[in-house]
Simulated scan of single mutants.
Amino acid sequence: MSVATTAAALSLSADEKATLRTAAYGAVSLLAAVDGTGQPGKIAAHGSMALYAGTGPVGHVLAEKAKVHDLSGKSVAEIADKVFPALTEAVALLAERNPAEAENFRAIVLLALESGAHARKGGATPVMADMTARIAAALSTK
Results as ranks from 00 to 15, higher is better:
His118Arg: 11
Glu89His: 09
Ser48Ala: 15
Glu78Leu: 10
Lys42Ile: 13
Val109Cys: 09
Ser2Gly: 09
Lys67Thr: 07
Tyr52His: 15
Met1Arg: 05
Thr55Leu: 09
His69Gly: 10
Gly73Met: 00
Leu87Cys: 05
Leu62Gln: 01
Ser75Asn: 10
Asn104Arg: 14
Glu78Ser: 10
Val61Ser: 02
Thr132Val: 11
Lys65Gly: 13
Leu62Thr: 01
Pro126His: 08
Thr125Ile: 09
Ser13Leu: 07
Leu87Tyr: 01
Glu78Thr: 08
Lys82Val: 01
Arg120Met: 01
Leu111His: 15
Ala33Phe: 06
Ala4His: 10
His118Trp: 12
Lys74Gly: 15
Lys82Cys: 03
Gly38Arg: 06
Ala14Gly: 14
Ala27Gln: 04
Met128Leu: 06
Ala9Lys: 10
Ala63Trp: 02
Arg120Lys: 14
Thr5Cys: 08
Thr141Asn: 14
Ala18Gln: 02
Tyr52Thr: 13
Leu20Gly: 00
Leu30Ala: 01
Thr55Asn: 10
Asp130Glu: 15
Lys67Phe: 09
Ala90Thr: 01
Ala119Cys: 07
Ala14Trp: 10
Ala95Cys: 11
Val76Met: 08
Gly116Tyr: 06
Ser140Asp: 15
Pro40Ala: 08
Ala7Asp: 04
Met1Val: 02
Gly54Arg: 06
Asp15Met: 14
Leu20Trp: 04
Asn104Thr: 15
Gly123Lys: 04
Lys74Thr: 11
Thr55Val: 12
Ala7Pro: 04
Ala23Thr: 02
Ala95Phe: 09
His46Tyr: 14
His118Lys: 15
Gly54Cys: 09
Ala124Gly: 11
